[in-house]
């Protein structure tokens, strides 16, 4: 390698998530500066880069609720050597998957046409808008995921610990206290 200090290139994104996991990532506070010595960010809400280039690591928050999510996930899988599902939504579908027992047609109809206060409603059909999937899926239903980081959101310490393990070449392990489900 040309330089030993070559930084790891990292991309992150939020699919069907609430940005809570990204907020938790920011919660590592001043350790962010330490992290930035080791990594540089590619596509990420932190950089506003729109498309992912070749990366060492991809971190994804949120599951899959629409066609665009699937496209972004595939772009990440193609570009990143290692892909991490971060948070309950990415790992299991999480909160958005609560809609899975409803018929998506009924959902759209209720929200856009028959709900209270709606007159002359219609279901948006602009091709610019991604269509929702009939059910919300976790990431590993569509591509291979290398690591799962559970929690809703995973605590900042867990993310920090996890990234350190990964950067140092250790298989990440989350010990007692770092796995939270609420």
């Amino acid at each position: 390698m040309a330089s030993e200090k070559k930084k790891l290139r990292v991309a992150t994104t939020s699919l069907a998530g609430c940005f809570g996991c990204h907020m938790s990532l920011l919660d590592i506070d001043e350790r962010l500066l330490e992290l930035l010595k080791l990594v540089e960010f590619d596509r990420s809400p932190l950089t506003d880069i729109k498309h992912c280039g070749p990366c060492d690591l991809g971190i994804i928050e949120g599951g899959l609720c629409n066609a665009e999510n699937v496209h972004v996930l595939r772009e990440f899988r193609k570009s990143c050597k290692v892909l991490v599902a971060m948070g309950a939504c990415a790992v299991n579908g999480g909160l958005p998957a609560q809609r899975n027992h409803l018929d998506i047609r009924d959902c759209l109809q209720t929200v856009y046409m028959t709900g209270t206060g709606i007159r002359r409603g219609f279901i948006p059909n602009d091709p610019e808008l991604p269509l929702p999937l009939d059910r919300v899926h976790p990431l590993h239903d569509v591509v291979k995921i290398d690591y799962f980081l559970p929690g809703c959101p995973p605590p900042a310490d867990a993310i920090w610990h996890f990234l350190n393990d990964l950067l140092a070449g250790r298989t990440p392990t989350l010990g007692h206290g770092l796995i939270h489900y609420d």
Partner: peptide
Amino acid sequence: VMPTFDLDRSLAPAREVTGR
């Protein structure tokens, strides 16, 4: 690894109600 469900079919209900 491949998708564990039929991706295109999973858009069918939304296609139906949007007419797209």
